[in-house]
Design a protein around this nucleic acid. Structure first.
Lengths: 181, 181
DNA sequence: GCTAATCATGTAATTAATTACATGTTTCAA
DNA sequence: TTGAAACATGTAATTAATTACATGATTAGC
């Protein structure tokens, strides 16, 4: 059997993105550069084979188009079966807390005393990183959701961007709590 | 070559845990049940083969012991080379922001309008989940770090537990912001 | 007109991680 | 005393994910 594993979440992300609008594999790969990339990552080398399997499974179909003289594109669309699968997934409970895989936090864990001279530089480095990320997310919010109407039209997107902003704000606050200068 | 990939972080976690005290593979697997499990997960089926490879690489060694009549145990210890590798890893910058892979947030992203009736039940489910986790972490903090001296002796552990608590507290606050009842 | 960036699609090789299979010992509680 | 839970170690099979290899077209700027 060449079926798709139960916990492969990328397939659902692809279904969700194609439900927003028909897209190419290239477009799907680029989607991870915006907010959804805060919560999942995938390379084109994982996406193209998965699109093939999902099409074989009857969840999506594609239409061949040509851009310019001869640049071939495959525009993928949801089938009604794919749409059903997406709705089922969103409707299911999500009872799992996935570990966050934060390498800095892992390193902190192995530091024994508060006198360790590595702590403060590490905190400063992370503060810079998360402050930069916070600034980036805030400017994204201003450009993507400048009006109340924009919020309305992509409410889920607004929510997860707001969540990412709060997360970074709180991370910065936590780091500041332990910074001595 | 049967070398270990550059980004395999589990090896560093194992080095760090063995630096705390000599342990068996079984002990290492159990370690993910406490706070470090909030930030990484690994099964014994991944740990045992990795211990073998790390020993082949000269980073750790083991001593065979027997518990009771004949229960064989392998007590692993860091070599000085393994200790160096741990120190190098902790001292390196950690400039990567890893996506958090929160399935609930992924689902939210695909909800179009604030009138969608699925939103409120989903928020309530997550609130229950994260409130339970927050309560658990707070009680862990009370039992593991009852005194200031306890904090001193495992400061990194204290920091990451505090971080996990703040994270859950903030998650609960964020969910509450969008709950209408 | 050139050239770099971006668009576009794929495969191959490897590593990381999960789930299932497999076996045996010791301890604790009913 | 017996049965379940926990201790203890491994391998096999599969899937997920990353990195590298591979090719070609179009667009935007110099």
């Amino acid at each position: 059997m060449a079926s798709i594993g139960q916990r492969n979440r990328l397939q659902y992300i692809i279904l969700g993105l194609l439900n927003q609008r028909p897209q190419t594999g290239y477009d799907l790969a680029k989607a991870f550069e915006n907010e959804i990339g805060e919560f999942w990552q995938a390379q084109h080398s994982q996406i193209y084979p998965l699109l093939r399997r999902m099409e074989d499974a009857g969840e999506i179909t594609h239409e061949d188009t040509v851009a310019g003289e001869k640049l071939a594109k495959k525009q993928y669309t949801l089938t009604s079966s794919g749409h059903d699968k997406l709705v089922d997934w969103v409707s299911e409970p999500s009872p799992e807390l996935t570990p966050s895989k934060d390498e800095f936090i892992l390193k902190l864990y192995f530091i024994k005393t508060d006198a360790d001279p590595r702590i403060q530089p590490m905190l400063r480095e992370q503060l810079r990183l998360h402050q930069t990320q916070l600034d980036h997310l805030k400017s994204r919010q201003e450009t993507v959701f400048p009006t109340a109407a924009a919020k309305q039209q992509a409410y889920g997107h607004y929510l997860i961007l707001d969540h990412a902003i709060e997360r970074e704000r709180d991370y910065v606050a936590w780091l500041s709590k332990y910074l001595t200068d």
